[in-house]
Design a binder for these strands. Structure first.
Lengths: 338, 338
DNA sequence: CTGTTAGCGCATTCAG
DNA sequence: CTGAATGCGCTAACAG
């Protein structure tokens, strides 16, 4: 029940070997003979020694830990990104601590603060929807270590953002609908405070223009990410008469919209083509044949973590690249629609 | 770009006040005058002081951090439990670090080890499917701190488990089907190495017996938790002719089973009643009318965290209760089936 | 290859 | 109420 308290000194005394040698042995320093190393490891095991990382980290001023701030782990996209982050961090010998901002700037700030005071080596963050000022980030950058943004880019000096080419993905999705013959396409859009949704909207509009189609404000539905937001959209969209296509750039709201429609027994007519952003198993269930824009989620985690670790290890601490842009894949399935 | 390095000594020098007083002031010790406290806090802000938690934790041998080991954060049930854990931890002033075992004993062991060496104050864990030996847990318990199990109980001396009364929940679900007039009920079951699935099966069988119905092995499908497992079940279940009810105790596999059936255009006949364990939005989408057994997920997180924190703070470190059992709610909706 | 010495940043005795 | 002294456990010079 008592705390362990077996320290390197205990095993130092037991063996009549200096504690510094013990430390070296336990860290596999080449500067200790194989024989004494073995003796030491043996004794350590015997005494149930457990390294105190706090002390070690304090001394070396490194923690081999990276902090991850994520809006919400329950969103499938983020859960998968985190899986990707963990994979590469684990391989590189880094621990990962995950913090959920729940889209709150207050929580985000608090977490950055405790990450800083816990001396994590760097931070991966997808900023919250409320985040418009960046002091907490700058503070970490200045006193802490590198920051890499993922999914939601943020333009801070010497920080790189890993994100998806949302403009292009949106453009392609819209183009696909147009090529299917759609002329009146409704658009599910997300909160325009988030750059990514802005870019998706631009891609949509540009594709229309490039194909000489009119963009109509009335066909564009901006909403938040909650399920209620989706339901509101659903109510509006069923009233539109002329549409022959739907392009959803707001996966979360779209899902609850479809959920709502389904619960009311309303089906999207077969002659309406639908393309949706999608990394969620739910939409695959609702419409197995749906054409989707698949985001490189796991890969994004890998890449963001790799970049951060590179910056941690290059003492320069200056990011070479301002941003890394990934592209999404448009997956055309045997749609149950057109 | 340089590390911060503002320490209590820096502000001590700047103010000509001893560092011990600075430390006290920053920790809101009552033993320092309001006046000097203010001066110190002011200076701290001015110099951009950031407490070094590593040093502080090393000194006090407490980290105010609890480790959470979870099989997989992307499973909705666990994501919600974690949300519950975070809520109460946050309120009690504890940080949370989340580790995914991915159902691997090796990973679980490694995480317990780093949690131990990072001196977290306690651990909340849902053991992996592979976990049959408990040395890594006992080691933490002995040298580290209290452990509380959630969802997947584990009987280790002086550890409490927070879990759901799966037997009763299963019993009620089955009873509900029987009361609807079902006589031939198929059963989706999970891996019997996990105690919880064993209990669910027992509940199912006992309910049948209590109502003088025969339990048939051929109607019981045990499977793992992967989506392939679900698909295998789906293939088998469509071949059964006589069934008039389905009770699914394995939500994950059941979801992919339904997904698979749906993609093949196969519908579960309307005269078959279905009850499923459910904390997943997907099943709500597939069958909005489904009668479900709803597990107290968020609440479980609250309760487990509360219990752990209590044990951390009671130096006794002996758990009073061996287990805390929560009950699930059977939610009967206007089923599209019976 | 090993020992000596010193100190990371902080909190806590114990004196005043 | 404040200051002086000590050490948490470990690592990193620097000598030998």
């Amino acid at each position: 029940m008592k705390s362990n308290k077996t320290t390197i000194h205990d095993i130092s005394k037991a063996l009549n070997i200096d504690s510094s040698t013990v430390s070296r042995a336990l860290n596999n320093s080449p500067r200790v003979s194989e024989k004494t190393r073995k003796k030491i490891r043996q004794k350590a095991l015997e005494l149930g020694y457990q390294r105190n990382s706090l002390a070690s980290n304090l001394r070396t001023n490194k923690t081999h830990t990276i902090g991850v701030i994520v809006p919400r782990i329950s969103r499938n996209f983020f859960a998968t990104v985190i899986a990707g982050i963990e994979e590469t961090a684990y391989e590189a010998g880094y621990n990962v601590v995950i913090c959920q901002s729940l889209e709150s700037l207050e929580r985000e700030t608090k977490f950055m603060d405790t990450l800083l005071s816990n001396r994590v080596d760097g931070v991966l963050i997808s900023i919250s929807m409320e985040t418009t000022s960046y002091e907490h980030l700058l503070a970490f950058k200045q006193h802490g270590g590198p920051i890499v943004f993922y999914d939601r880019p943020c333009h801070i000096e010497n920080c790189t953002s890993v994100s998806i080419d949302d403009f292009q993905a949106s453009y392609n999705a819209t183009k696909h609908l147009i090529e299917q013959g759609c002329k009146h396409i409704a658009h599910f859009s997300g909160p325009q405070e988030i750059e990514l949704y802005k870019n998706r909207k631009k891609g949509f509009i540009t594709a229309l223009e490039d194909h000489n189609l009119l963009y109509k404000e009335a066909y564009c539905f901006e909403s938040g990410l909650s399920s209620n937001d989706g339901i509101e959209i659903a109510k509006k969209i069923v009233k539109l008469k002329q549409i022959d296509g739907i392009y959803s750039a707001n996966d979360t709201a779209a899902i609850s919209a479809m959920q709502y429609l389904k619960s009311k027994g309303i089906q999207i007519p077969n002659d309406i083509a639908v393309v949706g952003f999608n990394n969620d198993p739910i939409s695959a269930v609702i419409e197995p044949g749906l054409t989707t824009v698949n985001q490189p989620d796991f890969e994004m985690g890998n890449i963001a973590a790799t970049e951060l670790i590179k910056q941690i290890q290059n003492k320069t601490a200056n990011s070479e690249k301002d941003s890394i842009i990934l592209s999404s894949e448009l997956i055309v399935r045997n749609s149950s629609n057109k």
